[in-house]
Computed example of a mutant assay.
Amino acid sequence: MFYYFLKFIALGPFLKVVFRPHVEGAENVPAEGPVILASNHLSYADWLFMPLVIPRRVTYVAKSEYFTGKGVGGWLKKTFFSGTGQVPIDRASGSAAAGALKTQLGLLSDGEVCGIFPEGTRSHDGRLYRGKTGVARLTLESGVPVIPVAVVGTDTIAPPGKKFGRLVRPHVRFGQPLDFSRYAGMENDRFILRSITDEIMYEIMRLSGQEYVDMYASRAKEESKKAVATDKGDEQRKLAS
């Protein structure tokens, strides 16, 4: 209930009036029943704008630490994350990945809309990176279709490494549902998982218009940091010589 208060009474109208998000393909999201929304990830604002343009609640999994703080600050943080459609990862599953899968399967079994960012982390340069296969395992184990989603413009509103950028109108595009029931029972086949993930990422690329890079975003970030550090070192040596 608090989620709907936050979305429609407090935060939602403000974001809609200020940013006027444009939506395409919202009719592809079913009015009821479980579905997986797999989106690109350009900014921390993605999880705000994508759910804003459809009437259904979109639930994401988040680190359990966000829900276990003490005192007033801990309560406020827990209330905020719960109210904006996030639930803690079930750490009892042994690992973050297994816990996230278990939590998401529970959400889908309850008929909810589950949001997921297959890249695993935000793109640092606006390009689309290789998807992790968790989304493939989720669709196979749940039997629920995947709707590819592209959020465009949020990296201008809230660029990586900054809290605020420029005021632009974000676009949210929902693709046609992808049904992978033909692979039922093959969730332990890594080649099938990779094939499904790549198909999902291709559709996200088509919707977003991003350049695709066949590398995990986390690795690309590390290589970018190393390159920057090397450039700085070279520049300092030139100045010292």
Rank of each mutant, 00 (worst) to 15 (best):
I192T: 15
E24Y: 11
R237H: 01
P177Q: 07
Q236H: 05
G94P: 00
E27Y: 04
V17L: 14
L37C: 08
D110W: 09
A229W: 02
F2A: 10
V29L: 11
M205W: 02
T103C: 08
Y3V: 02
L128H: 10
F2S: 09
K232F: 09
A26W: 12
K16R: 12
V87D: 03
V146F: 00
R206V: 06
A227Y: 02
Y216I: 03
E141D: 12
F67L: 11
V35D: 06
V23N: 04
R182F: 07
F5Q: 04
V18A: 04
L178Y: 02
P30E: 10
L128I: 10
P148G: 04
R56F: 05
K232Y: 07
K63T: 10
T154I: 01
A136V: 09
G115F: 00
L178K: 06
M201F: 04
R127C: 13
A38N: 10
A158H: 12
I9W: 08
L105R: 06
G115K: 02
Y3L: 08
S208P: 03
G143Q: 10
K78F: 01
N40G: 12
Q210T: 07
D155F: 02
A184L: 12
T59D: 13
L193F: 08
D46C: 09
S64T: 13
G12Y: 01
R219Y: 10
G233T: 00
K226D: 09
S224P: 05
G120L: 04
P170D: 08
F117Q: 04
G71S: 07
V146T: 07
A98E: 14
A229R: 06
V53E: 11
K16I: 03
G143D: 10
F14R: 06
S95D: 03
E141K: 14
P177F: 03
V149T: 08
V87W: 06
L52C: 09
R137Q: 15
D90S: 07
A217E: 01
K232S: 09
L108M: 04
A240M: 05
L11D: 01
S181M: 09
V61C: 14
S82A: 15
T84E: 00
F117D: 01
V18P: 04
K238D: 07
W75D: 08
G134C: 13
